[in-house]
Amino acid sequence: MPENPALALPRPSAAGNLLRHARYVLAGNPVTAFSFLLLLFLLGCALLGPSLVPHDPQASNALRALQAPSAQHLFGTDQLGRDILSRVVVATRLDLGIAFFSVALVFAVGGLAGVAAGFFGGWTDRIVGRLADTIMAFPLFVLAMGVVAALGNTVTNIVIATAVVNFPLYARIARGEALVRRNAGYVQAARLTGNGELRILLTTILPNILPIMAVQMSLTMGYAILNAAGLSFIGLGVRPPTPEWGIMVAEGASFIVSGEWWVALFPGLALMLAVFCFNLLGDGLRDIVDPQRRT
């Protein structure tokens, strides 16, 4: 919708308002504040990690293989003598990237399909609903495995597979929310002011269900990270020697029995922390984007 600059009269800087509101929400909710800090830390690792790490994550050194954590290698080294700290930090970008793009994809496709299904009803609803039912009929992880196996073992296909398995969740939530709002007063009012159905869907319904979707996005981010790591763990998806949490856990698993616990522990911890962070983030995010809570 073309925003009219002349109409935005003396609005006291919207960005400033949002910031103030965010600070209020964070102050009242230390758990959310903590998850935000964690998110900032993870994003920092993803963006700056490769230039900050002490060692080349790919450089192997047979002499230093399987060393316990020490001052030089804080997280120890793996079976090829690579620095685990460096590998864990560098892997952040890939893991968060896969999760982010898969969630963005499923939000766009699943969210839109769901909103359309709820808003238009009839055949649109039936087609989207049956599609979601079909996807849900498979165990989700097995389906993701199948998608990657069929399409090929690339990062793009992991993104697509993760998006596919999350489709029903997004479609259903968006559908439910659109269904509630389909005949709300302001939607009727939008009809009266000459908005066509498609425009109402995009400019009236969709922005109003964004807060709910934002919470969902945050929650599925955690799941998407796990999914990507899980696929790599079983050997589908990212291939060694690329640093990736799932592979690192998989590689380290065989060393746990012989006492080299650090090889699997630290990437596992990173994975846990990331999932934990996004799960906590969900509720805080909703409070910030929901205009009802802004006064």
């Binding site: 009219n4 002349a6 109409l7 009269l9 302001y186 009012a189 002011t193 000459g194 908005n195 205009p291």
Partner: peptide, 29 residues
């Protein structure tokens, strides 16, 4: 219920003019 919670009062009032009217820009404001 009849006002979109994400639109300001000005935008709510301007909406019918934007869609069905001819005024734009400063004249609309």
């Amino acid at each position: 219920d009849s006002l979109n919670p994400r639109h300001s009062a000005a935008r709510a009032i301007a909406d019918p003019i934007r869609r069905l009217g001819t005024l734009r820009g400063a004249a609309l404001a």
